[in-house]
Simulated scan of single mutants.
Amino acid sequence: MNWKNVLLIGAVTLLPASLMAQANILNAKTPEDIGKKTEAQKAMDHDVPLEYGYIDERDILWSKTVWETIDLDERVNFPLYYPTDTIDIGADRRSLYDVLLKNIQNGKLKDVYADSYFKDKRKFSELSATLSMKDTTDYGYEQINAGEELSPEYVITRNLSAADIEEYHIKGMWYFDKRQGELKYRLLGIAPVAPDVNFIDDDSMDPADALVELFWVWYPDARQILHDAKVFNQRNSAQPISFDMLLNSRRFNGVIYREDNVYGDREVDDYVTDNALFQLLEAQRIEEVIRDREQDMWAY
């Protein structure tokens, strides 16, 4: 056995995954060259997401809008959650929450909304009460009552981070395209869900009761941003995929918690109460109705 080859293979195996996924690593002459693409590579890149085809309203034979919960505790959904600690990792790897928040801050993602109906717009300045919290300690109140200036060390600031995100809520439409004769899905919106920042460290409150939607993003408006941001590919770190590809190809597990209905789009737990198993079965029933719709369109 050639021990030199064994040591070489072992060294490559121990390389950080983020390092192996970066571009131009095999041609880099210095560590600073890692991640920099050549002009030829830039010319070959197609840095735009695959455009949605035009769908005429007359071609939609049937449709149903559903809201789903993506639980980040499930292993299949980990690519949307990690990495949460970005200190020792490359800038090319960020969680979905960090990607959305960064582009809201720099203005590339201009419109965010208060709910999933996309009627009430929010600016980043209006999200500060949702994303961060400031509180004064007892010693700080003693300073204020004594007429003294409040010292900064007595002010507690708590900002939500990617590690605090528990779920994502998505809104999408299943529709039957009679021109192509198939059932399709179109993602319409996505929202990060985290505990209310004002109660996130309150042990007396049930964490499930404190979850709130931070903001909603109109998904077609964010496609270019999510196309540029890459997700770590566990099967092949040399071929990362984009968040846009991951979400559009539904490479995640989601559970339906609401559908459009005559009762004002009520949620499943509004009519199946205090029974998580029955709520899950109801979500599966709605999925089966959607799947069976495509089969029912055909007659033999």
Results as ranks from 00 to 15, higher is better:
2 N>C: 12
3 W>S: 13
7 L>E: 09
10 G>M: 12
12 V>L: 15
28 A>Y: 06
32 E>M: 04
33 D>F: 03
46 H>T: 07
47 D>L: 08
52 Y>E: 14
52 Y>Q: 13
54 Y>C: 14
54 Y>G: 12
69 T>W: 14
79 P>C: 07
88 D>R: 12
88 D>N: 12
90 G>V: 11
95 S>R: 02
100 L>D: 00
100 L>F: 00
108 K>D: 05
125 S>I: 10
130 T>C: 06
130 T>W: 06
131 L>H: 03
133 M>S: 15
134 K>M: 11
136 T>N: 05
136 T>W: 05
137 T>H: 05
138 D>Y: 14
142 E>A: 14
144 I>T: 05
145 N>F: 15
146 A>N: 08
151 S>E: 15
154 Y>Q: 14
154 Y>V: 12
157 T>S: 07
166 E>S: 13
168 Y>D: 00
176 F>M: 08
181 G>C: 09
188 L>R: 09
189 G>D: 01
192 P>V: 01
201 D>E: 10
202 D>N: 06
216 W>A: 01
217 V>H: 00
223 R>Q: 04
234 Q>E: 14
240 P>L: 01
240 P>K: 00
242 S>G: 03
245 M>L: 10
247 L>I: 06
254 G>T: 01
256 I>D: 02
257 Y>L: 02
258 R>Y: 04
268 V>T: 11
275 N>K: 05
278 F>G: 04
280 L>Y: 06
286 I>D: 07
295 Q>F: 14
298 W>D: 07
